[in-house]
Write a protein that binds this DNA or RNA. Structure first.
Ligand code: MN
Ligand code: MN
Ligand code: ZN
Ligand code: ZN
Lengths: 136, 136
DNA sequence: ATCCTACGATGGACTTCGTCCAAGTCAAGA
DNA sequence: TCTTGACTTGGACGAAGTCCATCGTAGGAT
């Protein structure tokens, strides 16, 4: 995330106070926020920022590859600013907490050739589910 | 799925024409349908079946463990009647096609102890993404 | 420093997916 | 056949997200 503003400028994007604030929220220590959580935190700094702008900016950051969308089961999408280091997720089935994890295997290699059906497999997404100590 | 109706009865559930039709739709060769797709097909056989009943029945089948929910990226949940045999999914980023696959590794074992954060990890969901031959 | 203007922001309507509820219906046991 | 509570229904409601006409402004041009 660190030089996101510079990269945006490099792509000819206007630097607005709204985009700056959204980037700052994502750059903080809070990870895996929903769009509305990002909006809430952004509005603490810039009270008039709109929901639509937060959605727009998040979508742009996803296309840029600066932020990842984390799919959830029936709940709101979560946005992951840790796009630099490949990782997977450990999710608590009780409270919904999401933690980054780094499994050691090679999941793509584990998919047999005869089960690839001619696909060009480009990525793997792994979600570990369980109960955190507090919810157990 | 095969003896689903018998198992439902065994749990003391009433057998209604609606539940029978939903089970028949899921038992067909069409897999990974959305709730509305299930409703559409069910309504071909039983025109007056309501959306609410389809949602209710699908939810009950999920709790029973007869059907799995497949999380998608921002789109409607898909329901998977193949709950007997553990498997994972290969999804085409182009057209959205979903195929069942059976990777050979042990993904749960690949998660280092120091990254489990005290969680009781119960399941792993793996999604392979890529382009199918038609979309490549 | 000021002007221009195309790109971005805004908020409210709209869509999609799903849940909830009060009222009516009916499966199945007595 | 009767009874009853579980099931179904349609419509209202809600959450998450998109769309769009209009307004505002970042940043290049002068
Ligand atoms: Mn993450
Ligand atoms: Mn499947
Ligand atoms: Zn928890
Ligand atoms: Zn395809």
């Amino acid at each position: 995330m660190s030089d996101l503003l510079g990269r945006l400028r490099g792509r000819g994007w206007r630097m607005t106070s709204q985009r700056r604030v959204v980037a700052e929220v994502l750059d903080g220590d809070h990870v895996h926020l929903t769009a509305d959580e990002v909006h809430l935190r952004a509005a603490e700094r810039l009270p008039e920022i709109s929901r639509a702008t937060v959605y727009n900016t998040l979508g742009e950051l996803v296309v840029l590859g600066e932020v990842l969308e984390v799919s959830t089961v029936g709940r709101a999408k979560r946005y992951d600013p840790n796009a630099r280091r490949p990782h997977q997720h450990l999710v608590c089935s009780g409270c919904g907490t999401v933690r980054d994890v780094h499994p050691v295997g090679n999941a793509i290699g584990d998919l047999p050739e005869e089960e690839r059906f001619g696909f060009a497999v480009g990525s793997v997404e792994i979600t570990y589910r369980g109960l955190c100590p507090a919810c157990a």
